[in-house]
Amino acid sequence: MVIRRLQNWPFDGFSGGVSELDQLRRDLGHLFNGLSRVNGWDSPAGVYPLMNVSQDSENVYVRSEVPGMTLDQLEVSVTGRNLTVTGERAIPDEQSDVRYHRREREAGKIRRQLTLPTDVDSERVQAKYQHGILMVVLPKAEKAKPKKIAITG
């Protein structure tokens, strides 16, 4: 399995773009997580909820899949460059006379900290929860925004 992965490594000019590298990075992350469970390290990756981070020139966007929560169960805070999302996902009990066939959905605490790629203006951070996705929009601090430099001849 590992050997096949190595052979599939996109040496030819990274044609697959970022996503394949990401996939590899994730795979390695899982490998290390597997090891860390054995050795008892605590690695920051592999903590629920998983996050996708993107940016444009104005903002940093953090998205996370946390289905089935309510607004009062989620808490988002920003300190310096650290974004923290905490909460608790509750799955209410059904009536007692039901028989479960499958229980794959999990309830429990969520706690995630993420270091942001740039400084942000923590006063203007906005968070939105829609369709089970938490989206945090973090406006970049003025000094972190790209500046256009006029070139003089």
Partner: peptide
Amino acid sequence: PNVDIFEDDQALTIVADMPGVP
């Protein structure tokens, strides 16, 4: 999607996590 499936005398219920789906 991850699901919970349970039933009682009246009905079978399936609960599925589908984040991001309107």
